[in-house]
Write a protein that binds this DNA or RNA. Structure first.
Lengths: 255, 255
DNA sequence: TTGTATTTGTTCGTATGTATC
DNA sequence: GGATACATACGAACAAATACA
């Protein structure tokens, strides 16, 4: 009768919980190894099949990695953004998230990344950005193929400079989801020379703002650029929200 | 010798890929059912253990749900942000994220949530917010215990109003992580009557801004409030970044 | 409503290929 | 080269619980 819920506590769940808890508390740290499968069978009093199901789940979440035939047992892994990326891809490809949502989030995250980068910039990070600009400008001249890779790399370097891993991950995942989505609908947005030149100019302006410690400017630049890049791809109603995001930081909305 | 990599293509992967692909293409839609385990054994030419491992993985990413003993087979589920939430939680709890990082992100996400909520508000959402304000004000009077629950609920309702599931999820995870972290260090920040009253005032102001469609104001309010709430918990250097976030949207930094 | 058949959850025995000593 | 230990994988079997006639 009751629209019933909940998992009827399956055996393998105990092992999953044990490992998750252990990692969260710090009892298990990356590099540690779990006992072998047979040993786990003994310790947890469950069958091999259950142990294996638990290991598959843990592997899927990215917490452990069991090498094919390693007598030393499954390896505890350092957490990576990888599972998030996967889930987000599924979510976008199956309808829960559309392009407008992604652009919204990207404008938000990119702007914030620029802002904190300007606040936390170091000589080392600035050099990496300069080096990227160098390569970008080369590609614009020579017109080589993989421009978008360097393009995205710039954003990632900026996000890394801020030192906030969450901003980094959110931004990275969102960027990736967008290019996945766009490249599927609009085939290759980008070998246009004019577009490349504009992108380079934008990157240079952002770099200057960050180097000068002007986070507010860097943040505004990001939103303006993303707006003029993507706003034509969404509906009027959605575009209005994006415009608000630009104005939120005092930016001008190009018509 | 070689530090070898890669998965040696395990059997169950084929089934996992099949379902993922099917859902992505639209071949399988939520509400559909997969064949029974034994049927899958036949169709894919793999053992039942392998089929079950595949089902556990698919269950883990939220694509299917196999009810305990349902002869009709595993159910294809509508994608939810739940797996992202899980992964994010793991990442924040074990991945070098500190309080300052979390506060940064929360200021960013909360402000954005307010902004898009103001843009996409509906009568229904406004009513839910009003109802929450009602309850909040009751609690302030009577001084009942679980004030923080209703407090957080307000933020969540706002995030939901915007209609962007990503902002919703990111915000929720961040909020959750913060209260976990704070309640562990500072025991219960909140039965202070004065704090509760200020919170209520803040919520009312945000509600008014959203109802009026003034997203820029709502966003600024969020950052200012979070700054005055949390800034004393972080170092001077980190506080400077938070202050920049407030100024980014034209806010005043309370000294 | 009761019964029956089917399916899942689980374990066990066994075979195979591959590292390491 | 051989022995050992391990992970991968299959098939058979049981109990419990559900769906459906």
């Amino acid at each position: 009768m009751i629209p019933e819920e909940e998992a009827p506590d399956r055996r393998f769940q105990r092992l999953v919980d044990y490992v998750q808890q252990g990692v969260a508390v710090g009892d298990l740290t990356p590099g540690d190894r779990l006992p072998s499968e047979r040993e786990l069978v003994r310790q947890f009093g469950i069958g091999r099949a259950s142990v294996r199901e638990a290991l598959r789940v843990l592997e899927n979440v990215g917490l452990v990695k069991s090498q094919p035939r390693d007598p030393r047992g499954p390896l505890i892994q350092a957490p990576t953004p990888e599972p998030i990326r996967r889930s987000l891809t599924i979510l976008t490809s199956a309808g829960g998230v559309n392009l407008a949502h992604l652009i919204q989030v990207r404008m938000i995250m990119e702007a914030s990344a620029n802002l904190v980068a300007a606040a936390g910039r170091s000589q080392e990070h600035l050099l990496a950005l300069e080096e990227n600009l160098e390569r970008t400008s080369e590609r614009v001249e020579t017109g080589a193929g993989d421009f978008s890779v360097i393009d995205l790399e710039f954003d990632e370097l900026v996000a890394r400079s801020g030192g906030n891993p969450l901003i980094h991950v959110y931004g990275e995942v969102t960027r990736e989801a967008i290019v996945n989505l766009i490249e599927r609908t609009i085939q290759a947005a980008g070998d246009d020379k004019e577009v490349m030149r504009r992108t380079l100019d934008h990157h240079r302006a952002v770099y200057a703002a960050i180097a000068a410690g002007n986070g507010l400017l860097a943040s505004r630049l990001a939103r303006e650029a993303l707006y003029s890049h993507y706003s034509h791809l969404v509906s009027d109603r959605e575009r209005a929200v994006l415009a608000d995001l630009v104005r939120e930081c005092g930016g001008e909305v190009a018509t």
